[in-house]
Simulated scan of single mutants.
Amino acid sequence: MRNYDLITPEGTKDLLFGECIIRRKIENTLLELFKSRGYSEMITPGLEFYDVFNLNSRYFPQENLYKLTDSKGRLLVMRPDSTMPIARVVATRLRDAVLPLKLCYDQTVYRTEPALKGRSDEIVQTGIELIGSQLKIADLEVISTAVDSMKALGMEFSLEIGHIGIFKELVGRLEATDKEKERIRKLIENKNFPALNDLLDTFGSNHITDALKKLPALFGGAEVFEKAEELMPDENIKRLLDELREIYEDAAELCGNDGNITVDLGLVNKTDYYTGLIIKGYLEGHGDEVISGGRYDKLISEFGYDIPAIGFAVNVNAICKVVEKSGIFPAVPSPDAIVFAESGCEVEALRTAQELREQGEVVEMALFDDLESVREYAKERKIGKVVVIDGENEEEEA
């Protein structure tokens, strides 16, 4: 008995007509912007060996991966992330390429989050990776590209920046297991203050636990840095704060000080291959981030090539949801003309249609055996011109 032949798997959906137009417009707008800044597009396989995502750091829990085997019994996964496969390519096929490398992509990733309702397991990501530079200008270029990506889509947005090193510096001084550290990270990310306080209380009261308790509340403008320095009078953390402050001030100036860029020291991304700057972007009317990225200076070294990198991905699905929420879908364009062939005139009709297309028109062939049906169809589809080929005269109707 077939139970699932008329539905799609959880976390996926069919896209029709106007939805496809929205998605392609977003993808094309972003890719054109990236390429205008010197980024070259690349595509990695939808299927990767599990080993690519099973490095020492285990960035992706295997329960979140879609897994299958190949004809030799080797374990494969459907690509859950674009950055790690690109890191693999850089460490192998692009190892001798001139640095810096500026790469962009537009591809789908697959992840399962069983606990989430309304989730997307099939996510279109369009993004960039700037590889081979640790300079501040690289960080600022990526931030400005993220800002311009949102501006290009014509939507109200906000961009948050943070530094994962601050959290790692603090949590690394706790006598905690990896599982406990991950629990602390998740509570900070979700800004769950009561549960975070309860968990940190089990480690006693000291300046480390006090700082971690207040980390999710440290967000806003330039005043965040003063509050953080008072809370964490530590030379290593002060150095990280100074680094982030410099980037924040330059980014705010670069983007016109219009209030779209804020600091959030509670940014502690789940994908913990990030080592420094963290970037998250949000659109008005959508609670989840639509841009996520940052600096990952150690990831490519796990593939045997030690070079720094920074990048971000735009969640195209999330932007589509914001557009669709307005209820205004773009009209599906109608063909300019439809060509009807009387019996025996099919070849001539096909040639006529091609000639019209070469003139720049969108032309459809009529798949009816009587002219009245063609006229009704053209009226329904709002096709402005009917071309009739009868072997003797070519007739056009408005």
Rank of each mutant, 00 (worst) to 15 (best):
S373H: 11
V363N: 04
K298A: 11
G221E: 07
L267S: 06
V322R: 15
I208R: 00
V314Q: 02
K102I: 12
E235P: 02
N54A: 14
L187F: 11
L187T: 12
S36G: 09
E235W: 10
R2H: 12
V323P: 01
E156K: 09
Y305G: 01
L103K: 07
E246M: 12
T108N: 08
I26Y: 02
G285V: 12
C255W: 08
E230S: 10
V109N: 08
D198H: 15
Y105Q: 00
D148G: 13
S82Y: 01
R95T: 02
E253H: 12
L6D: 09
K151H: 11
L16F: 13
R173T: 10
G38I: 04
S158P: 02
E141F: 07
H163V: 06
M42V: 14
D178F: 14
R93Q: 10
R375C: 02
P100K: 13
P216W: 08
C255A: 08
E113M: 10
L135Q: 08
L240Q: 05
I143A: 03
D148A: 06
G327E: 09
D121T: 08
R351I: 12
L367W: 15
L254G: 10
G311P: 03
S301K: 15
E372M: 11
E372N: 06
V142D: 03
A228Q: 00
F17S: 06
I261W: 02
Q62Y: 08
A337T: 04
D70G: 13
Y377A: 01
Y273C: 00
F329P: 07
S71K: 07
E246R: 15
V388C: 07
A341G: 06
T271N: 15
D234V: 13
L350H: 12
S205H: 04
D272I: 10
T12S: 07
V98G: 08
S144A: 12
A313K: 01
E361R: 15
E380P: 07
A331C: 09
I43K: 07
D14S: 10
L33S: 03
F219N: 06
V89H: 04
E32W: 09
K186W: 05
Y273P: 00
C104M: 08
S149C: 01
D336G: 07
V290G: 00
E289G: 10
E376C: 08
Q107S: 15
G304N: 08
D390R: 11
D306S: 05
D148W: 13
K117E: 10
A331H: 04
L130W: 00
R37W: 13
I143W: 00
E223H: 03
N393A: 07
L350D: 05
G276N: 15
L76S: 06
D106V: 07
R88G: 09
E32H: 14
N317A: 10
L371C: 04
R375I: 00
V362E: 09
Y248Q: 00
R88Y: 10
F157Q: 05
V363Y: 09
I164R: 08
S326W: 11
L116E: 13
K214C: 02
Y66Q: 11
L116Y: 11
E397Q: 15
F49Q: 07
Y296H: 06
A313T: 10
R24C: 12
R2N: 12
P85L: 09
